[in-house]
Design a protein around this nucleic acid. Structure first.
Lengths: 185, 185
DNA sequence: AAATGACATGTCTGATTCAACATGTCAAGG
DNA sequence: CCTTGACATGTTGAATCAGACATGTCATTT
């Protein structure tokens, strides 16, 4: 069901084609919130249209079809946003690997953690840059879009991950050092 | 594929039955890393056994079958841990809802964020408590298990979420106040 | 002796999802 | 004119997954 709401959410912002939506998934949702391929997006758009939640508002070059959300679609989306399910579906390969870290020896654990520290730093820098750029563009005093809130969440999450990875690496070193100093244990 | 490694990872720690594994999923993995039901776990255990990555080491009361990881299973798990895929699959209904926050008006956004702030605080308290309990049990100077690292990651993640939700609520208030003070805008 | 509830393992149907296959358009460069 | 690459939309078959159904055990309480 979530894919359907992800699409409605993206279309609530502005009309878009299947291709546009696929790119939006790749740029924004894919890495943080919801993964989907175009082979899933096109059929779902069809179902959404059949259910009257979106409609085709233009057909352009190369068979391009632009979809817009309908009033009914907006109502449906809002109702989903305000009435969350009890239990959220979470599937996060990255975090799963963190959980399974305890199956490795210290050397292997370090080998897993080092790239985590590096990549989170890189991701963080990218996010920060695009946020700064957006803030520089908006005139001061301008009402901030709610989208800014999510960007901040992403920023903080990656900062947390980065700090944690460094802390974890340090921790492993400490434990090893303590063990070396007390070989009897 | 991830379910298979999640199961191998849990079995790497200690042998367990399908029922045990289902409960472990519910307690630990389900909310943070990987969601799976028993109707998926039982068949996957069968496949794992057929592939020689786990084996039945005991059959107990009520048809209970205890599985243990094999050497081959450990090798397979380690190789997956050390050779991560390029792109991680992420499906996170909760974060998806955050992304779609921008489709709501400020009043609705607040209604979504308030429970987030509350629940993250509750989750945080629970985690902190169980961590403190674990630390009190372990004699001082004891080598800390790598599992401690993940607990810390969970703790930090919920702290980040909580802080962010409060920040976001505050931000929305500020923007509204600014708008009220400047009704012409 | 019966009822209840936690324990325990499975199957089945339909929905979701993935990877691969398939087709074609249009613009720019050689 | 031909090639390349970005644009654009789909289908198909296999695998994965969810929710409901199904079955039975064992310990405790009534």
């Amino acid at each position: 069901m979530s894919l359907r709401y992800a699409l409605l959410g993206l279309l609530a912002d502005e009309p878009a084609s299947g291709y546009d939506l696929t790119r939006k998934f790749e740029r924004a949702l894919q890495r943080y919130a919801w993964h989907a391929q175009h082979s899933q997006i096109y059929p779902e758009l069809g179902k959404l249209a059949a259910d009257g939640l979106v409609e085709v508002i233009a057909e352009g070059a190369r068979g391009r079809r632009t979809y817009a959300i309908t009033e009914q679609g907006r109502t449906e989306l809002r109702s989903w946003m305000l009435n969350p399910p009890d239990v959220f579906v979470v599937r996060h390969e990255f975090v799963l690997r963190l959980f399974l870290l305890s199956t490795l020896d210290p050397e292997d654990a370090r080998a897993v953690l080092r790239p985590v520290a590096q990549e989170s730093a890189r991701e963080l820098a990218t996010l920060r840059e695009s946020l700064d750029r957006a803030e520089a563009t908006a005139p001061p005093g301008t009402e901030l879009a709610l989208g800014r809130l999510v960007a901040e969440y992403g920023l903080r999450s990656f900062q947390t991950m980065h700090d944690w990875a460094l802390w974890a690496l340090d921790r492993i070193d400490q434990v090893e050092a303590a063990k070396a100093a007390r070989p009897a244990g």
